[in-house]
Design a binder for these strands. Structure first.
Lengths: 358, 358
DNA sequence: TTGTACGCGTTATCAG
DNA sequence: CTGATAACGCGTACAA
């Protein structure tokens, strides 16, 4: 037992360097344990799990019984090391609050779970810097695909995504230059449509209001659409009230009404970048005794339930949130199973839903 | 150039077993690559990343530069193998739609991301069988903690959670017998409170309506609370209209009004298990020309934005969804850092929010 | 059909 | 402070 360990050759190999380490934790049940319990080799256990057809019926039953008795759960990390497949799809989104993207995740999940994939979540909190960090740490997990909200990333993040060689689905925006796959729509076009609607309804002194932060390119696109179309129609395109550093809440929307009315007293319509703000604004108008839409028209964006039940019901743009997730999932599955992807860039339809508020 | 590399000792071993395998994929950059590029050992690269203080300033800079140049991203799976730490927290929830739990996930994430954990999502689609499968596959990832919605699981799922030895936080319900940690409230108690409110307001012919499926124990608890309290108050406790197989939507809520009125023509108040249903019902009443609350009172559950902006505003029970997530995250962090957990079972407060609808 | 021997990329351990 | 080496648990390749 004395240690003259490590006679590198000569005595060959020799024991002694053994017992090098006994990893701390109370070690989980492994395939080897199951194998021993079933009286077979670890390899047979592996086959029983991944390729049951090639093992003998009786051996299989033996192994399956051992698995159950020992409560064996295969270690995916080890499996990932061996196969280089993680069965993980990563979703990178700004935030899960306010449920804007919750349905997208749900749709995605409904496509991917049955295929055996799990979903790893990454929050950027609407910050591009965070996004880069999140992308980096997510790549470390070796996901087999990535779904990301938006098409606007830091150069580094974009490069990381690109060189990863993974299927990447950008969503909720449209671009001529996607990293890889795309399921989106034009926020600018949607905003243009809303401006036209307001114009057609007779409104001429339009105000745009919303969160347009660095990390929220979708808000920026909507703003650009507003500016472009109001200008084209010969209206004042400069009436913009940004809500920076505010959270996406009814309260924020309500407060904005006062600010906007003092800044643009003659405004006859406000176009909000989100239904949440718009709903808060409608509520505030009621408190102020302003009639909607006679005294002030209000439009939102998103197509949430809230738009429908509001009184007056809210004019909004409906985005097929869940469908975006489903399509993204389908694209990924095609790519992952080497099926030729017919259309790598899918444009989903937004719908202007006229309400009583305009 | 012929390959007689690796003559491990005498002639023994003999080659031949070499070139055993060249894993398919275009192999990613590894620590060894970085090490070579920086002219150090892989171990030093590892230290530079995980324990920068112990490496020489100049060596560190050298390594960091190589990391950047090669765009090296450490492989978490390998790290997990070596350390037995995954830096993953799993969240198991029924569904992300309708945003009920989205804020909980958000709150959890806000606590855990800064601590370097990532979030793995598992959807059960409101089915206990699914839950067990999800638990199993999630355990395979070796998460360091689990947050799960609900306290009602299949015996197997419960056992899996228990023997995993991981910190497990059950949420959104209350129980005397949690698996481990708990952040919840009594759905039954909340329903009782709502019944009392309705009673105090003078309503006597109450109807309970909601989704009470096998996998949704929270709905069941609310129902039990309704039954218990109506009975205690000497009211008819049998007026129950279940919405099975329906999705959580305004439409479902609206349709229920007609069904309920034909089944219980004299009903004077409906208590819905969700604000979504209640909002749909209010909308439907308006269409039918029913006055709320004079002809029919309506109450919801959840405390969503929708309750506040509805006209009439909705009486509801507000659940601190985000706070539940934050508290769960805090509990996990305490456990994971071995800090003594002062209170492993945290009761959060629900609030009855009186509205104009009752 | 089953078993044996690597090797995946990282970190813990121990020797310099 | 740095380097060499042995695990971690599984799947692939090949031999039996």
């Amino acid at each position: 037992m004395l240690l003259h360990d490590e006679p590198p050759d000569g005595g060959q190999k020799d024991k002694v360097t053994r017992k090098r380490r006994r990893r701390t934790s109370p070690r989980r049940v492994t395939m080897a344990d199951v194998a021993k319990a079933a009286g077979v080799s670890a390899q047979t256990v592996s086959r029983t799990i991944n390729n049951p057809d090639v093992v003998n019926e009786d051996v299989r039953l033996l192994v399956e019984d051992a698995i159950r008795r020992l409560n064996f759960v295969p270690n995916f990390a080890a499996s990932q090391m061996a196969t280089n497949r993680s069965r993980i799809i990563a979703v990178i989104l700004p935030s899960l609050s306010a449920s804007i993207f919750a349905n997208t995740v749900q749709g995605l999940s409904s496509m991917l779970l049955p295929a055996g994939y799990q979903i790893l979540l990454g929050h950027t909190h609407y910050s591009n810097e965070q996004e880069e960090a999140v992308v980096r740490s997510i790549l470390g997990r070796g996901p087999e695909g990535i779904v990301i909200i938006g098409t606007t990333h830091t150069p580094n993040a974009r490069q990381l995504l690109q060189i990863s060689g993974l299927p990447v689905v950008e969503t909720w925006e449209w671009t001529r230059d996607p990293v890889d796959l795309l399921v989106g729509y034009s926020n600018e076009g949607a905003a243009v449509e809303m401006v036209r609607h307001l114009y057609a309804k007779g409104y001429r002194r339009l105000v745009f209001s919303g969160v347009v932060e660095a990390g929220d390119a979708r808000g920026q696109s909507r703003l650009r659409g507003f500016q472009a179309e109001t200008a084209r129609l010969g209206l004042d395109a400069s009436r913009i009230h940004l809500l920076e550093g505010c959270d996406l809440s009814l309260k924020t929307g309500g407060a904005s009404v006062d600010a906007i009315r003092s800044r643009y007293p003659d405004a006859d319509a406000i176009f909000y970048s989100s239904d949440i703000f718009a709903a808060g604004a409608v509520q505030q108008c009621r408190k102020l005794g302003l009639r909607v839409p006679e005294d002030l028209a209000i439009a939102g964006f998103g197509g949430f339930d809230i738009a429908e039940i509001l009184i007056p019901s809210l004019t909004t743009i409906r985005i097929p949130s869940r469908q975006i997730g489903e399509l993204a999932g389908r694209l990924l599955l095609s790519k992952l199973t080497k099926v030729a992807v017919e259309a790598p860039h899918i444009r989903v339809d937004y719908t202007l839903v006229p309400g009583e508020s305009t």
